[in-house]
Amino acid sequence: MSRFDTPVVVTRGDAEGPLVVLLHGRGSRETEIIGLADALPRGLSYAAVRAPIAEHGGFAWFANRGIGRPVAESLRATMDWFRLWLDGVAPPGRPVVLVGFSGGAAFAGGLLLDDPARFAGAAILYGTLPFEAGVPTDAARLAGVPVFVAQGDHDQVIPRELLDRTWRYLTVESGAPAISRRDQVGHAIARDALAALAGWLVERAAFPAPPGGPVTAPAHRERLPGDLPDRAGSRPDVSTTTPQQQRTDNAPTEVRESCSPG
C-alpha cells in the first residue's frame, strides 16, 4: 500500500450510510475516538483510523510542530496512504465527511485542502490547519464545501495564534459555508459543541455537498450597465453563524431602508 502498514480501522453504524471518518489526536488512538459515534447521529457509517506514525505523536505531527520539507513530504505520503484506503471503502457517489480532533484536525484539514472535491464536508475540532505543510490555502479554496469549526477559549495545547489563523481562514478566506463556535473549555470537546456537530452531520447526510469541488468564477461575466468599478480594500467582517450577517462595510442607512420590504 505504501511505506506504511495497512490501515487499522474500527467501525460503527450503518455500513451503507454516508461515511464519517474520525481522526484522533496526540496520545489517543482509533479505539478511543470511535466512542464519539455514540453521541452522533444514527444512520451514518463511522470509521476511526489509527495514525500510521505514532512515534511522532500520530496525526499531530502535521500540526505545525516542525515546519518545512520533511513535514510536507510526510503529510503527502500519509495522505496518499489514507486516500488509497478511503477510495477502496468509499467509491464515487458515497459522501465522505472528515471529523478530526486536535492533531487529527490538522490531518483532516490537509486532506480537505488537498482535494476539496473529494469530501462532503469536514469538522476541524480544537486544532489547526497545516498551513506550512505544502497544501494550498489560497482564497476561496473551499468554496461550497461545508465546514464545522469548534475551539476552546481556554485551549493551552494548540497555540492561540494558530487557532486564530485557522478560525479566520475557515470562516472568511476559504469561502467555505462554515458553522463555527468557541466554548468556555480547554482542549476538550464541549458538550454543546458535540450536540452542534451532531446536528451538522444530520444536515450533511440530508444535503451532501454537490460533486465537482470548489465553486469557481466563470470565465466570462455579464457586465452591469455602467461597469461597476473593482472593489478596493479588505473583505468585510461577517458573522460565523447561520444566517450569516455582514458586520462592516454596510450600505448607508438610507439605502438599506429603501430596500426593506414595506
Rank of each mutant, 00 (worst) to 15 (best):
G27R: 04
G27P: 06
G27K: 03
G27Q: 06
R29C: 06
R29T: 03
E30L: 02
E32W: 05
I34L: 14
G35P: 02
G35M: 00
A39Y: 10
P41L: 00
A48Y: 09
A48V: 04
R50W: 04
P52Q: 07
I53Y: 15
I53E: 10
E55R: 14
G58K: 10
F59K: 14
N64Q: 15
G68M: 01
V71G: 08
E73K: 01
M79Q: 15
D80F: 07
W81F: 05
W81T: 07
R83D: 12
V89P: 02
A90C: 12
P91D: 09
P92F: 09
G93E: 01
P95Q: 10
V99R: 01
A105T: 03
A106Y: 04
G109R: 12
D114S: 14
D115M: 03
P116T: 04
A120I: 10
A122Q: 00
I124Q: 02
L125R: 03
Y126A: 00
Y126I: 06
P130C: 09
F131N: 08
A133N: 09
G134L: 04
V135Y: 12
P136K: 08
A140R: 15
A140V: 12
R141M: 08
R141K: 04
V145F: 00
V147Y: 12
A150H: 13
A150L: 00
Q151D: 00
H154I: 11
D155A: 11
Q156H: 14
L162A: 09
D164T: 06
T166Y: 09
R168C: 08
L170D: 03
L170H: 09
